[in-house]
Simulated assay, not measured.
Amino acid sequence: MLILECKQGELQNGKMIVVKKFNFKQLTNPDVQKKLFMNEVFPLTSPKHPNIVRCVGYCSEKSNEVVKHNGIFVLAESQPEMLLCLEYLTMGSLDKHLKDESSGLDWRTCYKIIKGVCCGLHYLHEECRPQNNNAFIIHLDLKPANILLDENMVPKVADFSLSKLLCDKKTQTCPVEGTLGYMAPEYISEGKITTKADIYSLGVVIIEIITGSKADLSNPDIEHEEGIIMKIKEHVEKLCEKSREVRDKIELAEGNGMVATDKIETWLARADTIIFEGMAVCESKQIGLN
């Protein structure tokens, strides 16, 4: 089990940082520990991007301590201490700013946040090459709580603890982890991961930013598979309805000449398609359970 402790710190030059300390409980395999730690480090140590939270530094070191073993004192190697230092972002996470319709944010700010998240996600999928020219990163836990904002409300994607580094575009599977409400149905039901999983989450985030509709499925009835499929299906149906509302609001803003929205339209169209694909997955899964 991985437990993260986050504390605020200050560098010698006076700049504030956030220090994440990785505590591994009931997880003694050093290879697994290293993999979980590097999941966070890899995306943050690649070439910098303005919409990915910046890594200031990291370390992983072991120390020796004297312990009593079979009645005698021996020198033993302790668990490694793994620390990740990140830039401090004054406005906190996006979820703190989402309260009601329009999220309490003006349209220009909404647009800036949505565009920034789209750019950060595009970087992870298409431009970030941490190991070779074919590698790319899938975040797998994109949600408002993992989008941080600086003093100018510029968004930065954060928390890569569940991310996967893949080397080809083929569909792969993995154990299902993430946040219900933001996970694509095919990922929930079968553990399938492609870049579509992140784009589905992006669509949910865009809808939440513009409409204020929370994607909170934190307490669903999941005692049986049928229960969770029904809950996810209801959620996706609402997303399909809300996506139309989002399009209306974008067209209205565009008609008023507030801001160019072509890039958002492109990403929303992709998210729309994938959300509707998610509906098909829910329906086919439900039929299979009947």
Results as ranks from 00 to 15, higher is better:
Leu165Glu: 07
Ile275Arg: 01
Arg247Ala: 06
Leu11Glu: 08
Pro175Lys: 06
Thr171Pro: 14
Asn256Pro: 13
Asn29Ala: 06
Lys20Asn: 15
Thr179Met: 12
Val157Met: 03
Val18Gly: 15
Met230Cys: 07
Met279Trp: 07
Gln79Arg: 13
Glu251Ala: 14
Ser284Gly: 00
Met153Asn: 05
Lys170His: 10
Glu40Ile: 02
Lys285Trp: 00
Leu252Ser: 15
Ile3Trp: 02
Gly181Asp: 09
Gln172Met: 07
Lys164Gly: 11
Leu162Tyr: 05
Ala269Trp: 05
Ala215Leu: 04
Ala158Phe: 00
Ala135Val: 07
Val53Trp: 03
Val41Ser: 06
Val32Leu: 13
Ile210His: 06
Leu121Val: 10
Pro175Leu: 04
Ile52Asp: 00
Val204Asp: 14
Tyr200His: 06
Leu4Cys: 13
Lys15Pro: 14
Ile138Arg: 02
Asn23Cys: 14
Cys118Glu: 08
Ile229Arg: 03
Val157Gly: 01
Asn23Ser: 12
Asp198Tyr: 01
Ser60His: 07
Ser201Thr: 09
Trp267Met: 08
Tyr88Lys: 06
Lys112Thr: 05
Lys99Gly: 15
Leu36Met: 07
Gly14Ile: 00
Ser243Ala: 07
Val204Gln: 11
Lys20Gln: 14
Ser63Pro: 08
Gln8Asp: 15
Met1Thr: 12
Gly9Cys: 14
Lys285Ser: 05
Pro185Gln: 04
Ser201Asn: 12
Phe24Ser: 10
His122Tyr: 10
Glu77Arg: 10
Lys115Pro: 11
Phe73Cys: 11
Gly120Ile: 02
Thr266Phe: 08
Leu142His: 09
Glu5Val: 04
Glu265Tyr: 08
Thr195Glu: 02
Glu40Pro: 07
Ser63Phe: 13
Ser102Lys: 03
Leu202Val: 13
His69Cys: 13
Thr194Ser: 01
Lys233Pro: 01
Asn132Cys: 01
Thr171Asn: 11
Cys119Tyr: 06
Gly104Pro: 06
Val67Tyr: 06
Ser78Cys: 14
Glu234Gly: 12
His122Trp: 07
